[in-house]
Amino acid sequence: MAELTLRRSRMPRPAITVATAVLVSAAAAGLLAPVLWPLDQSAVDLAQTRLAPSWAHPAGTDDLGRDVAHRTVYGLRVSLLVGAVAALVATIIGGIVGGIAGTLGGPVDRILMRIVDTVAALPHLLLGIFIVAMLRPGLGAVVLSVGLTHWLSTARIVRSELLSLRTRPFIDAAISGGAGRLRVLTRHLLPHVLPKLALATTLMVPHAVWHETALSFLGLGLPPHLASLGNMINDGQGSLLTGAWWPSLMPGLVIVIVTLALATVVARWRDRLDPRVRAELQL
């Protein structure tokens, strides 16, 4: 007698645990930093510029004598906040556009999707730079710039989901049972779309973080004194030429690790949400 279990290739469990731990500590650091480890964003200490990593400054200091580790925590806080808000903005825009296209269909759908295709044809970063340039630089401009360039995939997801749901027999059955448009939308369509929308939002946060970092790196993002990961990597450039490699290293590593962790957790969540996989789990 043999007992065997067959495994499908999914995200291994330790990876999920590590990723979750990384995200929880990143969120905790971001939330608690102002209480536990306050930072004066504009403070400089010209006596301690470009010190190599040591016990006093675990990640060294930058060209203005600021502690890199300390500022990285604040940079992460700002980047995650901007990423999350921008992802939310993108989801709202994409949800509305995709929702209208998918519910109304026909010519409205064709026009809206043509617009989506047109915007998608433009390079993201270029469009983002253009939007920031039109507005006054600052947190709001960066959020809008990221949001306005990242709603396309959400719009496509919502639209195609709605279009495929519309033809399902259970929608026909609801109509035949006397349900109106609003009832079908709120009772049968949205509950199926919302989890996918939430997933799309979460998937977008890493994109948004990177986009913010890229804008700040180009000097188009947040004000230079404000610690953001992009600003810090940008500032670190000058130090690199003098042989001080550390001011860019820690913010760079943090952004890579945190976005990887986020992507890992989201991938796991997507596995669970995929109806085919879910059906198997519930067999």
Binding site: M1, A2, E3, L4, T5, L6, R8, L281, L283
Partner: peptide, 29 residues
């Protein structure tokens, strides 16, 4: 051999042919 991971299979299912029979339930995937 196409069951999901939470399945436990016991017993034998011998497939005869040329050569030794293969137990479909224990054979390597």
């Amino acid at each position: 051999g196409l069951l999901p991971a939470n399945a436990a299979v016991t017993g034998t299912a011998l497939l005869h042919g040329d050569g030794a029979p293969i137990d479909l339930l224990t054979a390597d995937d």
